[in-house]
Computed example of a mutant assay.
Amino acid sequence: MDSTAHDFDALVRDGATSPVEGWDFSWFEGRATEERPPWGYARLLGERMGRARVSLDIDTGGGEVLAGAPAVPPCAAATESWPPNAAKATALLAPRGIVVVATRAGEPLPFPDGVFDLVSARHPVRTDWAEVARVLAPGGTYFSQEVGPWSGAEVSEWFLGPQPEETWTGRDPEKARTAAEAAGLEVVDLRAVRLRMEFHDIGAVVHYLRKVVWMVPGFTVERYEDRLRELHELIEAEGGFLAHSSRFLIEARKPV
């Protein structure tokens, strides 16, 4: 077995066996890079959390972003639909007095109308604007950083081939504005950015596809071994695999 084949097997095994719970991306250090949006979502969220009285964080993941807030409102809750993440978030957030509620994707939020003056979400699976508007108190704010159009398309299409344009355009920020306004909210801030991401070894690609499962639905190493080997050779030859993510920041208020 030559060294390249050995390296491929070892790297893939590492990416395929490392835990993927939560939204801590420290595992990728030295193996993949992604530019961060210029606005600093965690800092801006922390400022809003410090002013809020009753808050809700939707699709909190493992609770890592919320746990970093300098101050927490007197009454704070978070939701998460993936059981491993919900368990991790509970362990991380309970000591700070934040209640984590396990939910099911696509179901209404399990809270009464008009109770939260701050609803937040970082990379929600899908923003249900009608539900957000329902649980917001009059004068309350929805604050979110979301995945934008064509995010990670280069990675996905390496394995799946060219995808229909509508696959990538559903998360357009202007569509989010339209949906927010249709739900009765006033959009007060909307910013978008396209960011460079680069994978430096094939193990990082495998780990990424296991963590961000919607990029290549049903991904397994066995199913895509040939394409993984081709990508490994490209990374070895060129020093990395370049892709791009996109993000948008949206803030909307419910009229008094």
Rank of each mutant, 00 (worst) to 15 (best):
residue 125 V to Y: 11
residue 143 F to M: 10
residue 131 E to I: 05
residue 46 G to I: 04
residue 120 S to R: 01
residue 102 A to C: 04
residue 74 P to H: 08
residue 48 R to S: 09
residue 33 T to K: 02
residue 17 T to S: 15
residue 156 S to P: 02
residue 34 E to C: 13
residue 86 A to T: 04
residue 20 V to F: 04
residue 30 G to L: 12
residue 115 V to L: 13
residue 79 T to C: 08
residue 152 G to Y: 04
residue 122 R to A: 05
residue 15 G to P: 09
residue 58 I to E: 09
residue 50 G to F: 15
residue 108 P to Y: 13
residue 27 W to C: 05
residue 93 L to Q: 05
residue 79 T to L: 04
residue 132 V to R: 00
residue 113 D to K: 03
residue 80 E to M: 10
residue 39 W to R: 11
residue 31 R to L: 07
residue 66 L to W: 01
residue 104 R to Y: 01
residue 66 L to R: 00
residue 90 T to R: 14
residue 27 W to L: 10
residue 123 H to F: 15
residue 116 F to M: 06
residue 36 R to L: 13
residue 35 E to A: 09
residue 32 A to V: 07
residue 30 G to A: 11
residue 110 P to Y: 05
residue 149 P to F: 10
residue 129 W to S: 04
residue 87 A to C: 03
residue 100 V to T: 14
residue 127 T to G: 05
residue 120 S to D: 03
residue 115 V to M: 13
residue 36 R to T: 14
residue 69 A to P: 01
residue 107 E to Y: 08
residue 23 W to T: 12
residue 32 A to T: 08
residue 123 H to Y: 15
residue 65 V to I: 15
residue 78 A to T: 11
residue 101 V to G: 03
residue 24 D to K: 04
residue 108 P to W: 12
residue 25 F to K: 08
residue 109 L to E: 02
residue 92 L to G: 00
residue 126 R to V: 11
residue 145 Q to F: 02
residue 141 T to E: 15
residue 60 T to W: 00
residue 144 S to Y: 02
residue 90 T to I: 02
residue 80 E to C: 09
residue 35 E to C: 02
residue 49 M to K: 01
residue 154 E to T: 12
residue 99 V to H: 12
residue 155 V to F: 00
residue 35 E to T: 02
residue 21 E to V: 11
residue 68 G to M: 06
residue 22 G to K: 07
residue 142 Y to I: 00
residue 45 L to E: 02
residue 40 G to D: 12
residue 46 G to N: 04
residue 134 R to I: 08
residue 124 P to E: 06
residue 124 P to V: 05
residue 70 P to K: 13
residue 31 R to Y: 09
residue 128 D to E: 14
residue 17 T to M: 07
residue 135 V to T: 10
residue 109 L to P: 00
residue 128 D to M: 06
residue 86 A to G: 08
residue 77 A to N: 01
residue 140 G to M: 02
residue 139 G to C: 10
residue 88 K to W: 01
residue 157 E to I: 07
residue 125 V to D: 06
residue 109 L to H: 04
residue 124 P to Y: 06
residue 104 R to F: 03
residue 51 R to M: 10
residue 64 E to S: 06
residue 103 T to D: 08
residue 75 C to R: 14
residue 63 G to D: 11
residue 105 A to E: 15
residue 112 P to H: 04
residue 104 R to K: 13
residue 88 K to A: 14
residue 159 F to H: 08
residue 65 V to H: 07
residue 147 V to A: 13
residue 66 L to N: 00
residue 66 L to F: 05
residue 25 F to S: 09
residue 112 P to K: 07
residue 55 S to D: 04
residue 115 V to I: 12
residue 151 S to G: 09
residue 67 A to Y: 02
residue 64 E to L: 14
residue 78 A to N: 07
residue 137 A to P: 01
residue 129 W to R: 06
residue 102 A to V: 08
residue 66 L to I: 04
residue 131 E to A: 14
